[in-house]
């Protein structure tokens, strides 16, 4: 296999509050390969955003934040890099399309200026050339009147337009890696599809790798080559999209797919996972999923030992003590049936 563009190793992020420690990300490891689209899924609060932000060291620095592990990129560990060198990478080699486009633009500057600023930070140019490039980018992401919209303020943009502008900012410097954090959640369905097209187009044009964070398994099926499933700050399963969808080997993944409505499918596939995600200030012992797990059936080891992310087959890996029990179709269906009763 080719070398990964980015390799995350044992990444942990903790927030200390006055009376607790939030373990938002715990020993997370995964790779991103050139040109691929990696989907990252997991319920709200599973640590997806914190993982990505910590890689670029964009979490607000304070005494309360503890980050450890490695994020290898171009032979350098982003987590150990000097600020100056890190700045050279941010926005040029690695671009972030952040989660909420409504709050991610500076309200007091024209969108165009903010776009040009992204270019200027790495490729200083004349006012005119920056503007030309910016208008071009707005055109690329499908804004109808790029020349006019270049001079508008964020509050004059709709949600979809802002998301497009954020994508334009992301691809401005032809990055090697684009991290898109739920680029479509804030938008209505028709616009979602358009935005994904824009993102795909932009990615194809620059042949960048794309890390796509989402709640939406449908989107993963459509866009991603590989998947990382996160739960309570842990990676619980990872592998090719086709494998994961056909043969999930982690009850959480199975549960996620259970909450995915199947067209013309069975009623029983509409079950969401029972219970709610854990409070990350008090992650359950052993396997963090055990209080909600239907496969565990109260077995001791789930409560005592954290399962390792072990190989199932090829690059498919799962962190479950009893992943073998999910091996055949029958067991899966059985598990599904039990979820219903």
């Amino acid at each position: 296999m080719t070398e990964p563009v980015m390799s995350i190793q044992d990444l942990s992020v903790r927030f200390r509050t006055h009376d607790s420690v939030v373990r938002a990300v715990d020993k997370v490891s995964f790779d991103v390969y050139p040109g691929e689209t990696l989907g990252v899924v997991g319920e709200s609060g599973s640590g997806k955003s914190v993982t990505m932000l910590s890689i670029l060291r964009l979490l607000q620095e304070s005494k309360r934040l503890e980050t450890s592990g490695h994020a290898w990129f171009d032979g350098q560990d982003l987590l150990a890099l000097r600020q100056k060198d890190l700045r050279a990478i941010r926005g040029r080699d690695i671009a972030l399309v952040p989660q909420d486009p409504m709050t991610c633009l500076d309200p007091v500057f024209k969108v165009g200026n903010q776009l040009s600023e992204a270019i200027k930070a790495h490729f200083p140019g004349s006012r005119g050339s920056l503007r030309r490039k910016g208008v071009e980018l707005l055109d690329l992401v499908g804004l109808p009147q790029p020349d006019r919209q270049y001079d508008q303020y964020p509050h004059e943009y709709s949600g979809g337009m802002r998301q497009r502008a954020m994508i334009a900012m992301g691809v401005a410097n032809d990055p090697k890696l684009i991290i898109a954090d739920e680029p479509t959640t804030a938008l209505d369905v028709t616009i979602q599809a358009q935005i994904m097209d824009v993102l795909r187009e932009a990615q194809r044009e620059s042949n960048a790798s794309l890390v796509l964070i989402t709640h939406d398994l449908g989107l993963i099926a459509e866009m991603a080559d590989r998947v990382v499933v996160m739960y309570a700050g842990h990676v619980v399963e990872t592998g090719d999209v086709a494998t994961i969808f056909a043969h999930p080997r982690h009850p959480y993944t199975l549960g996620l797919m259970g909450s995915l409505p199947q067209t013309g499918g069975d009623e029983k596939w509409l079950r969401p996972i029972p219970g709610s995600p854990p409070n990350l200030a008090a992650v359950p012992s052993g396997c963090p999923f055990h209080p909600r797990c239907l496969l565990s059936k109260g077995r001791e080891i789930c409560r005592t030992d954290l399962p390792a992310l072990d190989t199932v087959e090829g690059s498919h890996r799962s962190a479950c003590h009893f992943k073998e029990e999910l091996a055949d179709e029958a067991a899966q269906l059985l598990a599904q049936a039990e979820q219903i009763t």
């Binding site: 319920e43 979602q192 709640h215 939406d216 398994l217 989107l219 909450s259 709610s276 995600p277 409070n279």
Partner: peptide, 11 residues
């Protein structure tokens, strides 16, 4: 398209 349920954490 399906959204994973987002339960409220119990206050």
């Amino acid at each position: 398209m399906a959204e994973i349920a987002v339960p409220e954490s119990g206050g």
